[in-house]
Every structure is written in structure tokens, then in C-alpha cells.
Design a protein around this nucleic acid. Structure first.
Lengths: 265, 265
DNA sequence: TTTCGAGTTTCAAATAGTGGAACCACATCT
DNA sequence: AGATGTGGTTCCACTATTTGAAACTCGAAA
């Protein structure tokens, strides 16, 4: 009765195809020629053409007539801004992240899970002030990041399995957990400990301690992490951040939960 | 052969409708119930339902089964991030904005024009941030902001007219230019001067000096502004920022231009 | 001038979207 | 309990929309 799992994304209807085109453009990473899109896409010329037309005059794509290239449009940025603001997590979490970053003196990340991928929705760099899209919106793998594992550990059975299925288990570093089995074992430990580590599993020299954010028992809505480098701290030292990290994560969870039940009449 | 100006947005095809739904959800500003969407929309129940379904399992909307509400999805954030990064303006401008904000010691905004609206794509906060609305992705009116007027002044005839048509000319403050005539006169002056002021036209107490960013003569790609409050500076003092502002705007323009012609084979 | 490739338009066929109405589940009245 | 209501989901015949092969246009290269 509904669409089945299909890794390359089940393209439901015209809308699905249109959105696929957006992804294509995004994947290109730079303004694209129509012809380039065409050969990357399975759609026939005319179809793709009309699709791109539509997206363009909807502001989802921007056409540069001089260069004859398409890029993602500003409407996306506008929508994303609203998405961010209306999220029950990121805006609520902001003040807590501020103090946590201040206290720890290290970089703090706030992430959510989206179809098996970690997506960073906020970041506070200890030294630098506010950075918006430079980092927010960035995606990363779930199986080899602190936030990713923290979320996986606490999400429901089915969701977790689905997410794990989507992991690539590419060994970014020697420390990467490169199989579902290793990952599952790690997740058990994380649940037992209440926090997750990234032991240089994604990038050499980068370590972090992460905790899940629960809006209510069993409902993971994100994760929080304190990241540092091996040059500044050892893994063992990271545990010192635990109390503050957990406190912040819990506070955010509670705040987000409350936010969902605004004092209505 | 092409679409004409149509304030309520010409909904081309199913894709258009789908995107309209996204806007609806965005406009709501918080998670929406299906029924709420329904009465706000002109579409019949079943149609809206399927549309929302599609958008949801495409990740453009996120459904909260517990609360039975829809919110904008993370896929948008992901796409917007890419949009930002692949833009020829924002990423290129960043370093220049950094030094400009540093030099001036005031808040710097980078904006672009999107269908008659100003959309802020980056922002550097001064050490002591001023209370005001603004953030990346945030939109604002063109006719009563420094960046907006700077861009209007330098864009082509047709584009400008189209943009001006879309302005509301609501008088936010006594200083607001509340008619096309006043605005056009101001634009002439801006062209003559090479910079634009915001004389508390949008928010009382907030003033700024702005300059257009041209990638090549006659091609506005954005605008840059230095914002402050009347408590910190007078309008006359703002002119002192002009040299640095213009220098930065020109540098960004040149950099963006070069970026569009990457050293290809 | 001819050729070529990229981009744009046409048009009949049929797929995909539409929407009125029925349906279901659950909560709330009587 | 039974009746009533509300919000959400599904059906299905109708047709508007999308489709895509092919034809066309334009500019630049041969």
C-alpha cells in the first residue's frame, strides 16, 4: 500500500523526480550545464528540460543565462532557514550550546539523524562566534561519528536497523568500526555508558564525546558532542566533559519536549 | 513563452503545488496539523494528503507521528547547505566579510535579491551584537533596507521594475520611503553616490551603509552592508566606513567573477 | 555554406494526478 | 452504551498533466 524501501530513493511521482533533479544539481557541487544534467539523469531530454524549467521559475534552481548553468536557488535557503527555526531542536538548543561551548572551551556540535545520515544542525566553535550555513546542514556518516553512534544507540529497533543498513562502513581510519557487528557491540556499550566516544574513527586526530538528546524516554531527537583533537586532549580526558555534556543534553531534551507542548489556552 | 509576473505565484504543475505546500508549512512557523494545512489550502483533501505524503517520504517534510504534525524536513537543510556552498557569492565573500567586520567593529551583512526580496546569506556579528533581526536565510524587504536599495539601484531596468512592483511600501518607520517615486529618486542618488544608507527606514535606531557587489559592470550579484545603531554612531559617521566597504564589495565582486571562470583547460 | 551540438518546442498517447465520497479509528457528547 | 463528530486515510472513475520521440532553432565551428 505504500512505497517500499529502495536505496536510491523511490521516486514517487513527478514531485519525486523534480526533487531528484535538485539532488543531482546539489551533487554536482557547482553550477551545471543542462547537458551535464541530462547525461547524469535517466530522464529523456524534453522531460528533464521541463522539470528544470519548472524548478527554475519556482526559485528552487537559479539559472545563470550568461554561463548557461543551473545552481540551487535561494528559495531553498529561505525555506531551510524557516525549517531550522521551526525545528523543535536547534533553536531551543542554542542557548545551552552556547554555555556548553563556553564551559568546555571546545567545539560543540548539535546533530540530527536523517535517513541514516548525521546532519549537523548547529555548531559552536569555541574561538569563533556564529557560523551559520558554513557548517550547519553539513552531513556526515552515522557509524563513525560520536553523535551518529549516540543516536543509533538510542533509537528504536526498526529505525536503527534501517539506518544501519544504509551505512557504508568504509574504514576512514584504522579505528573505524567497519562492520555492523562491531557497531552493534559498540552501541550496547554506549547504551550502558550513556555516552559515546569517537576514537578517531572518522578523522585521524579528531576525537569527541557525544550524548543523545531524548525528548522523552526512548525518543531520540538528536545528539550533542564536544569535539577536540588529540593534540589538545586524550580520550581519557574527554570523560571530564561528561557531566556538563549530559546535563546540557538533558536540559535540551526537556526544553524541546516542553516546546512541543506550548502553553496553549 | 515564459511566465509573467503573478503575485500569488503561478503554480506550474504538480511540482508547483507541492512547493506551495512547502511554503504553506513554512508560513505556519511551527509544526502543522494536516487539517490546518487543509483549510489554509485550496486543494481538496485527498490531493493535499497525497502531496504531503510524497513530500514527507521525500524528506522535504518531517512527520511527527506522536503529535501528528508536519514540519519542514531536514532534506531542505541539507540542500540549502549545498546551495550556500555552491553559490558563487557567499563562500567567496566570507574571508572579506571577516576582515571588514573586524576592521569596522560593526555588524556586516551579505545579501542577495530573490524575487523582490532581500535575503541575507551571511552575517558577521561585531563583538557587541546589536539587538535586531537577522540571520542567514532570513528575508527582508528591499525598499527599506540598505542592501536592498543598493541592489535595486544597480540592477537592470526590467528586473528593477519587476522588483519594485513587488514591494509593499509599508511604512515601518517615519523615515521609510513609502512610495515608488520616493524610492526611485533615492535610487538615483545611490547610483550617483555609489553607496546606500538605511536611515532608520526599517527599524528605529538601526542605520547602515551599504554597497552593491558587481561581478562585472552592470551585473549586481549582491550587496554588503555595515550596520550599527544610532546609539553608537550617527549617520554622518557612517560615511567613514565607505572606503573599507567599497573596497570589500569590489574585492568580493572580482573574486566572485573569477570564481565563475575557473581555470579550465 | 554545411555540419554539429546544445537547447527548445511540438503533439498524440497514456500515465499520473485529481477529488468526491466513502471509510475508519478514536474521542466526545447524550 | 449508543450516537455523533472530527481528523485522518483510502477508493476509484475521470481527465488533466506529463511524457518523450522527433522535429526544429540557433550559434558556433568546420
Amino acid at each position: 500500500m505504500n512505497t517500499q524501501a529502495q536505496p536510491p530513493a523511490a521516486s514517487d511521482g513527478t514531485v519525486g523526480k523534480a526533487l531528484d533533479v535538485l539532488d543531482q544539481v546539489a551533487a554536482y557541487g557547482r553550477p551545471v550545464r543542462f547537458s551535464a544534467l541530462l547525461e547524469a539523469s535517466a530522464l529523456p531530454k524534453a522531460t528533464l528540460y521541463r522539470l528544470v524549467q519548472t524548478l527554475t521559475n519556482q526559485g528552487m534552481l537559479a539559472y545563470d543565462p550568461e554561463r548557461q548553468t543551473y545552481a540551487l536557488g535561494l528559495r531553498l535557503v529561505r525555506l531551510a532557514h524557516t525549517a531550522w527555526k521551526q525545528s523543535s531542536l536547534a533553536p531551543v538548543a542554542r542557548p545551552f550550546i552556547d554555555v556548553l561551548a563556553e564551559d568546555a572551551g571546545e567545539t560543540v556540535h548539535l546533530a540530527q539523524m536523517d535517513s541514516g545520515q548525521v546532519i549537523y544542525v548547529d555548531k559552536r566553535n569555541a574561538a569563533e562566534p556564529i557560523e551559520m550555513f558554513s557548517q550547519a546542514g553539513k552531513v556526515g556518516p552515522a557509524y563513525c561519528t560520536g553523535v551518529g553512534k549516540a543516536m543509533l544507540a538510542y533509537m528504536g529497533q526498526e529505525a536503527r536497523d534501517a539506518a544501519i543498513d544504509r551505512q557504508s562502513f568504509y574504514a576512514h581510519t584504522p579505528a573505524t568500526l567497519d562492520s555492523p557487528e562491531k557497531l552493534l557491540r559498540e552501541l550496547d556499550q554506549i547504551r550502558a555508558a550513556g555516552h559515546a566516544f569517537d576514537r578517531e574513527e572518522h578523522e585521524p586526530g579528531i576525537i569527541c564525546i557525544a550524548a543523545p538528546i531524548l525528548s522523552s524516554p526512548g525518543r531520540v531527537i538528536g545528539a550533542l558532542s564536544i569535539t577536540t583533537s588529540t593534540r589538545r586532549h586524550t580520550l581519557d580526558e574527554l570523560i571530564n566533559f561528561r557531566p556538563a555534556l549530559i546535563r546540557a543534553a538533558e536540559a535540551i531534551g526537556a526544553a524541546a519536549h516542553d516546546w512541543q507542548f506550548p502553553t496553549d489556552t
